[in-house]
Design a protein around this nucleic acid. Sequence first.
DNA 1: ATACCAACGTTGGCTTGGCCAACATAACAC
DNA 2: GTGTTATGTTGGCCAAGCCAACGTTGGTAT
Lengths: 164, 164
Amino acid sequence: MGTTNEIAYSHRMEHPSAPTPGRLRTTPSWLLTQTAAHAGRLVTTALGAHHARGYHYRLLATLAETGPASQADLGRHSGIDRSDIVATLNDLADRHLVRREPDPTDRRRNIVHITPTGRRELTTLQHALDTAQDTLLAPLDPTDRRELVRLLDLLLTHHNEPKG
Amino acid sequence: MGTTNEIAYSHRMEHPSAPTPGRLRTTPSWLLTQTAAHAGRLVTTALGAHHARGYHYRLLATLAETGPASQADLGRHSGIDRSDIVATLNDLADRHLVRREPDPTDRRRNIVHITPTGRRELTTLQHALDTAQDTLLAPLDPTDRRELVRLLDLLLTHHNEPKG
DNA sequence: ATACCAACGTTGGCTTGGCCAACATAACAC
DNA sequence: GTGTTATGTTGGCCAAGCCAACGTTGGTAT
């Protein structure tokens, strides 16, 4: 525990690359956030090539899966805050990837539709993302990839539905 | 591939909690960023109770491991940008957890020392973080935990040293 | 019916983490 | 000496994730 790490440091050391710490390399939260950062960079780059961000893809994907939905429902399904939904939908609507229509049965709600153009854009983004996944998982064989997905899914499921 | 997902949606559906999408649940980058978000919340909360943020802990931990170091070296070891190092060190120095001294052999550099108080604070933060790790990994048995760490470490190592 | 409360879309703002550009100073290489 | 590189620092940007508030509308209880 309270070991005093008075390591004699050599001034003029020439670290070639980036010698990563030791404590952190076994800290799950550190590993998660760091790998997530790498993943995020890959995804951002992949989507950025098509002028999209993570929220754009997430909303299009959610919309394609659930069908037309209210903004509140979209938020619940995609895990995006109501307020961020608004801004993202504005972007998507400006590019005609999405259409807002009033819900005749509830004048508070908008029913959001994905347009054919939006569906095409989603396909494009999906391809870009698939490539990014491959780059991300490059060092893992198929078995390890499935294992990783399994473990992460376990964590996500557990922390999403606290139930009690 | 291009399957048209025209799912008939039931207006007035009463989703109790948050029905997560399907495409995303098998997308590694999504799983990573989402679990990382959960991890981040836990860490932020844990550290926040002691008025610290991630950068504060990272710097203190790095400092304790490497011993006194220049700010540039700290940045390289911790993976934090030079400019962010400055601000974080300002915070830490204000709370006397860290001390900046001029490097007599190189007047550009500061040699940053962790103070005894800083070391105590680090221990406190470490405890808080350890607890957070347990909360994070709650649904995983020891074998799965080791497996997760192994896989994430593989990814991190691969993406950190591109070698080429 | 009236009063109350909950949900919706929207606006605006805030925080973390991660970047990048620029600049003055200082060290180093030629 | 000239030019290049490293350092600390300032200031700014972006994406993701939040939260509070407000006006409008629906539903519920009285």
